[in-house]
Structure formats: C-alpha cells, structure tokens
Design a protein around this nucleic acid. Structure first.
Length: 618
DNA sequence: CTTAGGG
DNA sequence: CCCTAAG
C-alpha cells in the first residue's frame, strides 16, 4: 500500500486513540472531539462482500477530502464524482483502512461526504455505488472486531436488492437487516427506534415539485430550504448538492405511493458499477449518546442518522457500459437513505395491510408506472415482512430465463414421483416409475397423496433395473439422474430461487446409432406406434428415452429415410449419418404401416410375458 | 395413460 | 425436445 494508505491508517490509529480516551466515562461528555467514530472506506463487491479500499480509491477519497478543505468541491474526477462539499477537518476523520490488503478489486469509486458542522466528530457521508452491498454472512468482518456491523453498520439500499442475496445466506442476515433499517430510520438518535417513527417527521414535505426553481436561490436560502425539508441545519455550501438533496427530499415522498400498486422511484436507473461504503467503526458503545449530549454538536444525532452507508443500485443497465452511462451528465441521484426509509415505511404498511399478501415467500409481480417510467415491482419477503422492490436482477442478466413453462413444473421443489398405486402389474408400474423418475420433466405431476416414498420406489426400481437388454446396460439409471443433477449443481446456489425451475430442462441426448438400431428393432417387433411397448421392452435400460422420444426419433428417421440425399458421411449437424441400411429398414417398416403380423404379435406377447416373468423373478 | 401431430 | 389434443 502506498503512502496514502499509510497515512490513512495512521489517522485511524489516531482515532482509535481518541476513542480509547473517550472510553473513560469522565471524559465522555465534553470530549466530543474524541468521539470514537472511525470510518472505513470499503467497497462493496458485486457479490456483496465488503472489501477494503485500494490505494487508488483511498487516494481518490483523500483528494475529495483534501480538496474539501478549501471548501471547494473539487472532485478528482469530474466524471466520476458528484459535486459535493466537504468541510470537514481532515481526512483523518474519514478513513481507516485496516489490514485488508489484497481483497480489493479496483473499481470506480465514489464517495460523497457532507459535514454538517465542520467538526470531525459528526459528519454525514453519502456514498453511492451500484451493485448491492449485502453479504453479511460471508464476509470476513465477523472475525474482525475492527469491523463491527451490528446496528451501527447501516446498510441502506438493502431493500433494493434481490432477495436471493439474503435468502441464501440464512436468517441471521434478516436479523441484521432489521436492525439496520431501524437504525437508519430513527430520527431520535436511537438506533432502536422503530422504523416508522422516523420517516414520518421527515416526509411532511409533500412539496411543490416546481421546486426546481431552487436554482435561483442563494446558498443561504437553499440551506434554509434544506432545514425546512429535513428538519435540520446544514452547513453545506454547495448549491448543487443542496438542491439535489432538497429535491430528493421533496420528491421522494411523492413518488412513493402509499398503496399497493405503487412505489418505485423515478430516475432510479442511473447506474454505477461499484460501491463505496463508508462504515463507521464504533468503538464505544455509548457513543451515540455521548454525541447527542454534547452541547456543541447539535447536529450530532442527525449526522449519525445520516451516516449510514448508501449505495445506489443499478437495476437496469449492464456493467459494461455503466462507466459511460455513469459519466453521462445528468445523473440522477437515487435511492439513498431516504428511499430506504420509504421502503421501510412501505414495508410497514404492507405488514399492516397484510392479508392481501400470502405469508409465503411471495413474489407477486406487478407493473407500475410512475410518470413516464414503468417499473415492474414485486413483493419480496425480507426478514419476515413483505416489501416491494423493483423487479430486476443483475444475476439473471447473464443467464437468460429459460423456458418459462418449466417454471410450473417445480413448484413444490420436491422431487415428487408419480405413483401408480392401482397398477396391477408391479413390474409395469416399476418401469413406468423409472421413466418418471428419470425423465426430468417427469417430475411434474402428482396425483393423489405425494406420500409415496420416492426412495422406496427408486430403490425397488433399481433393484430389478438390471435390464436383460444388451448394450448400454445399467449406466443410464444412475448416469442419467446424476447427470441431471450435476448439471444443476453447476449453477450458483445464489440463483436457486429463480433458476431452480428454469434449470430443469431436459437435456438433449443425441441418439446413438445403437439406439437407433434398437429403435428400429423395436418397431419391427412391435410395430410403429407402439412406443410405450418399445420403450418398456426394448429401451428399458434407457431411462432417458420416453415413448414420445422414440416416436419423435422415428419420425426423424422416417424423414431421413425418405430424403433424397441420404447424407453420405456426416449428418447436417455433425452427427453421424444413419447407415443407409438402417434407413431402408425404416422405410420398409414404415410401409408396413403400423400393422403387426399375427406372428409378430404372438412374439410380442411372448416377449412381454417373458419380460414380466423376468421382472417377477427379481 | 398413450398416441399423434404440431411447434 | 416440448406441448396438446385426442382416444
């Protein structure tokens, strides 16, 4: 790490020292300057992990901070940062990097800071980024007390995130979220304050939208407006920032509907690819109170309230062009703490309204238009409650949804096996079961009680699954099923909720020549159209071939056999061409239509009974 | 459920 | 390969 890093770290140390001081009860009340709040610059990786900032990012932020000392919003990179005022004392207040080197992946960094009273003990930091920042369970912060999340670590945009992010991580996350949201909303400075208490006081401004004449206001006026809007003072001197902030404060409440059909914020699609999260490292438990009690820092609590991590999520644009789009001039600020508050409020409402929403992990999708923008939202259960979030997924982006029909097939998510209880012929039922079990889509329906134990069926099938059929013996059974599942397992578990059903597509399995021959043989024995029989008797070992498959294949063979150009060597699609001999055989059989000679019929019966007998022996 | 046929 | 309609 470069020098910057070192210095930052030093600052951090400095901070910790002061923190240690204030731990002394006798000092706590007056020594506000020593308020043990340590900030860390972290970035939220795409997968949600929190990773410490890199040198570059640190530099960037430092620039921000330093420039700020001149009270001039000089951003290191105009394209990447927004105007902002930083009238804080020194960088030391901001950053502390711990020993996280190596974890960081350089990405665009954006950090916005705002200090309301130019004191280092209280400040507001706004950080924007895109990819959501949630992954509590997997991060290593837990092993490091340097990174206490608890309630102090406030995650704001959480609710915009795809549910899967949490669901796969266990309930502890939900808990955390709960705490977090509560904290972020609390106005009274009490982290424990109920979510609702907060937003109410802030959203009184149902304001005139034509407030865009803010541009003509002086800084003073803007500050005043700010105060009116947010109920607190600000020393921010940046017009743009103030305007934006105020607009956000004014607009957001309006956009957020209070009913079921609503929500969703307009102009929320500006994108960012990265996230910078600045978290506060609370060294002292009683910090908040200490701060609040400090006479000379009236804004303290507000600041604390504000000093949560904020990140905006890009829902609609890919990562690729995010850079360009991000830099595009009129970026609209979006989804920050306030948005979260609203979400929470909405959540609250949802809860109270309840009854409308299934208690399940419901995902009702609805389309909502907000102004010009049409947004699809859906209900998502988060920590037991239901909230409405934009229906987007960056996960799915990479992997297009597959056949939707498949969605219906796996509702229960259980491998239900169709049972044929009334089936008199045990062997037959077994075999059929076999088919169903192995046929991927065969998992579909269940008639009657599902109680039939899958295992027992499977077991019994496997017991006598030893086919009397020659080649390719056995293998299909295990190979097939395991093959299927292994296919699935290659997909990220995080995608599970969404993908699980889509995943279930029957894979194509090329017909081998031996299979074709067998098919022809089967047809010759039992006749065209007796797919079920052929399947049962001739393809008993090929679990993956269903009667329909046979039929389809036969159709193809037929077509091929009558084709003028018998494809000499390789089939069109690279598959082995079917020997002309076989094809002629097919043609011959086809001509005989489906009718089976009495002799064949007898033979068939015999074969069948033989088969049955064989089965019974097992 | 099995077949046939269309997609 | 999937789906559906028809026995």
């Amino acid at each position: 790490m470069g020098t910057m890093f070192g210095s930052v770290e030093d600052y951090g140390e400095m901070f910790r020292d002061t923190a240690a001081q204030t731990r002394d009860p006798s000092l706590s009340s007056e020594n506000y300057i020593g308020t043990p709040v340590v900030y860390k610059l972290v970035r939220v990786a795409q997968d949600g992990r929190l990773v410490p900032a890199t040198d570059e990012e640190m530099l960037e932020v430092k620039d921000l901070v330093e420039n700020n000392e001149n009270d001039m919003p000089i951003a290191p990179d105009p394209g990447q940062t927004e105007e902002c005022i930083f009238d804080v004392g020194s960088p030391s207040q901001f950053l502390q990097l711990d020993s996280f080197e190596g974890l960081f992946q350089p990405e665009t960094v954006e950090a916005y800071t705002e200090n309301l009273n130019s004191r280092l003990e209280c400040k507001e930091e706004l950080v924007y980024g895109s990819e959501m920042l949630f992954t509590l369970p997997d991060t290593n912060y837990q092993s490091s007390n340097e990174f206490p999340w608890n309630e102090e670590f406030v995650q704001s945009e959480v609710f915009l995130q795809e549910p899967i992010s949490f669901s796969s991580n266990g309930c502890s996350v939900d808990q955390s979220i709960g705490d977090v949201s509560a904290y972020s909303i609390a106005t009274g400075g009490s982290p424990k304050a109920p979510a609702l208490s907060a937003s109410a006081s802030n959203t009184g401004f149902s304001g005139d939208r034509d407030e865009i004449c803010l541009g003509n206001l002086s800084i003073k006026a803007l500050q005043e407006t700010f105060r009116a809007t947010f109920g607190r003072e600000t020393t921010c001197k940046d017009k743009l920032w103030l305007k934006r902030k105020i607009e956000m404060g004014l607009i957001r409440p309006r956009v957020m509907p209070t009913n079921d059909n609503g929500l969703i914020i307009g102009g929320q699609d500006n994108c960012t690819g990265t996230v910078v999260a600045v978290s506060k490292d609370t060294v002292d438990e009683g910090r908040a109170n200490t701060c609040k009690d400090t006479p000379s820092t009236p804004d303290c609590t507000d600041d604390f309230e504000d000093s949560l991590i904020e990140a905006s999520v890009d829902h609609y644009s890919g990562n690729e062009d995010f850079e360009g789009e991000y830099r595009s001039a009129k970026r609209v600020r979006k989804a920050t703490r306030r948005y979260i508050e609203e979400i929470s409020k909405l959540e609250e409402q949802q809860q109270s309204k309840e009854s409308l929403i299934p208690s399940k992990d419901e995902r009702s999708i609805s389309t909502v238009s907000s102004g010009r923008r049409v947004v699809v939202t859906r209900m998502v259960s988060l920590g037991g409650s239901i909230i409405q979030v934009p229906y987007v997924s960056h996960v799915r982006r990479s992997r297009p949804r597959e056949n939707i029909m498949a969605l219906g097939e796996f509702h229960s998510g259980l491998w239900e096996v169709k049972a044929t209880p009334e089936e008199s012929d045990l062997n037959l039922s077994q075999t059929q079961l076999n088919n169903d079990v192995n046929r991927v889509s065969g998992v579909k329906s269940v008639s009657g009680p599902v109680q039939k134990k899958v295992t027992s069926h499977r077991q019994s099938y496997e017991d006598h699954s030893k086919p009397e059929v020659d080649q390719d013996t056995m293998e299909p059974e295990y190979m097939d099923s395991s093959g299927d599942s292994s296919d699935d397992s290659t997909y990220s578990h995080a995608d599970r909720p969404i993908m699980q059903s889509a995943m279930r597509r029957k894979h194509h399995r090329a017909w081998s020549l031996s299979e074709v021959k067998k098919l022809v043989e089967g047809v010759s024995q039992y006749g065209v159209g007796k797919w079920s029989v052929i399947k049962k008797l001739t393809f008993s070992s090929h679990s993956y071939r269903t009667p329909v498959d046979l039929k389809d294949k036969w159709r193809n063979l037929l077509r091929a056999s009558f084709s003028r150009t018998p494809l000499n060597k390789m089939g069109k699609h690279g598959s082995m061409a079917i020997p002309s001999q076989v094809l002629s055989q097919v043609r011959e059989l086809a001509q005989k239509k489906s009718h089976v000679s009495p002799a064949r019929k007898a033979r068939m019966v015999r074969a069948s009974s033989r088969h049955v007998a064989a089965e019974n022996l097992r």
